[in-house]
Write a protein that binds this DNA or RNA. Structure first.
Length: 493
RNA sequence: CGGGGUGUAGCGCAGUCCGGUUAGCGCACCUGGUUUGGGACCAGGGGGUCGAAGGUUCGAAUCCUUUCACCCCGACCA
């Protein structure tokens, strides 16, 4: 056996190890045999499916439709938008041949005769291929807006990878919209950020800071990049979703022109926005404890597990009839229930296992309860056990699930709020950033001071946060010049 | 690409310095039994080209040469 989660007591020092162990042991994912890729296991994928399903519904409420574009992109597409190519060129996997042949030494080799005229890249993101197609779809203001989204995989040949947080291949959704006016596109970019923020806070119970990225941290090819930043338990930031206002950059690069209401030719305005399996990483690192995963009820594939405790097969038969009926009644209320009466694992093992998997509520019933008409309820977030009357347990559980959802959000929110520090003294900043946390600092708006902070402390400006009074930002803590904004600075994943 | 490290059973490791029975241990796995209110116990069993290739030797996991792979720390990133 490798290290137990509980043994990794000094969370701040062993945070990476703790996270890795948790991902593997909770049966979510594992390292693939392909470099930097991951295998998402059934339980992990069930969580991703819930994220997908709920978010997809939210997109559709805003008029977005789903599409699918090819995984392979002609190399030349990438070079059409200058900043975009610079941002992604260094991490592209490239397809150069289309055939293998048997080798004389056995095995197979790439057939040199099957070299492609133009190499294809495996999409790192689909702006180029989608905007190449939008040229054919968009001719008049009447064709706009185009509001498309696709759920797919993308590949970025990252140098260092980490399960869920940064794998070579990852699953995501990418929305790509085209608009007739700048205002409409900007509005859409902000709207989608709000969709993300609401989802992440309400369903994933992860509190966020929303804001806009600085020029250096912007998406390659964007005019503005909006972001949601979450705080992990070690005080580091995790960018959990982004929405970009792309201006007319892609419209011009791919010559997507339309005739507006005044019969004038103009280029289409663009947005793109995405969240990925990284959200799973955020979920794990925000709520989990040393017993394993803690899942918010709104996202848990199993919301309630019922474990019978019995002696002999007639004892089990007795409990089976009672607890199967209970499971059915809970399911009628839309609660996802697992009744685990498997005989090949003992109760203690099941308890530990479902805690590791983050099941929000556990119900346990044995002979003692049968006699007394009670049932034991354990909530995963606090690990508190309570014996309650069996009668009316359905109402109790339904309320408890909501309470847990609220409680873990409030807990995370309290943590976030208590780790945001206003700071305008650079010496103090350099010292305190070592312990993590978000720092609200005055910034003169120059790339130089931004680079200085990064060089000195590895911390970056996460965003110019929304909802912060920017009327009197103060003095830049690095340069001593008048500040333009108060910005959020933190170390990040 | 720079710095460090590791390859021995499915997983985690000992053995390597100083060559010597049939290569070991924990977990997992299989069979049987007893158990079952917090990760069960007993008995038995299966599983290994010791990363690969070459060399030294009566004899190599261990020594020499070459090589491959992976991991960690930096630069990159959703």
């Amino acid at each position: 056996m490798a290290t137990e989660l509980k043994d990794l007591t000094k969370r701040s020092e062993n945070y990476s190890q703790w996270y890795n162990e948790l991902v593997v042991k909770a049966d979510l994912a594992e390292q693939a045999d392909v470099r930097g890729c991951m295998v998402i296991k059934p339980y992990g994928y069930a969580i991703w499916e819930k994220i997908q399903h709920i978010l997809d519904g939210k997109f559709k409420e805003t008029g977005v439709q789903n599409v699918y574009f090819p995984m392979l992109i002609p190399k030349s597409f990438l070079s059409k938008e200058a900043e975009h190519v610079e941002g992604f060129a260094k991490e592209c996997a490239v397809v150069t041949h289309y055939r293998l042949k048997a080798s004389e030494e056995g095995g197979v080799v790439v057939d040199p005769a099957a070299k492609l005229e133009e190499e294809l890249i495996i999409r790192p993101t689909s702006e180029t291929t989608i905007w190449n197609t939008y040229r054919k779809w968009i001719h008049s203001w009447r064709d706009l807006p185009v509001l498309c989204n696709q759920w797919c995989n993308v590949m970025r040949w990252e140098m260092r990878t980490r399960l869920f947080l940064r794998t070579s291949e990852f699953l995501w959704q990418e929305g790509h919209t085209a608009h007739a006016t700048r205002e409409e596109a900007e509005e859409r970019a902000k709207q989608m950020l709000k969709v993300y923020a609401d989802f992440v806070e309400q369903y994933m119970a992860i509190p966020l800071i929303q804001g806009v990225k600085t020029a250096t941290e912007r998406f390659a090819g964007a005019l503005d990049t909006y972001t949601i930043e979450a705080m992990m338990q070690d005080g580091k930031a995790l960018q959990s979703g982004t929405s970009h206002f792309l201006g007319q950059n892609f419209g011009k690069a791919f010559n997507v022109q339309f005739v507006d209401k005044n019969n004038q030719l103009d280029y289409a305005w663009a947005t793109s926005w995405g969240v990925s399996t990284r959200l799973m990483g955020a979920l794990i690192m925000t709520h989990s404890d040393d017993n394993g995963l803690v899942l918010p009820p709104h996202l848990a594939p199993i919301q309630v597990v019922i474990v019978p405790i019995y002696k002999g097969s007639e004892g089990l038969a007795h409990l089976d009839s009672k607890l199967n009926a209970l499971a059915a009644r809970l399911r009628e209320r839309g609660i996802s229930v697992k009744y685990d009466n498997a005989d090949n694992r003992r109760p203690g093992f099941k308890f530990a296992d479902y805690e590791l998997k983050g099941v929000p509520v556990r119900l346990v019933m044995g002979e003692r309860d049968m006699a007394k008409g009670t049932i034991e309820v354990m909530r995963r977030d606090t690990l508190e056990k309570e014996v309650v009357p069996f009668e009316g347990i359905e109402d109790y559980v339904e309320k408890l699930l909501e309470e847990i959802q609220q409680h873990i959000f409030v807990k995370a929110k309290t943590f976030l709020d208590s780790h945001i520090y206003p700071c305008d003294n650079y010496a103090e900043f350099k010292e305190r950033i070592k312990d993590g946390g978000f720092f609200l600092c005055p910034w003169d708006g120059t790339a130089e001071t931004e680079a200085q902070i990064k060089a000195d402390t590895q911390a970056t400006i996460r965003c110019v946060p929304f909802g912060v009074d920017q009327s009197n930002p103060g003095t830049d803590m690095v340069s001593g010049k008048p500040a333009k904004f108060k910005v959020l600075v933190a170390r990040s994943y």
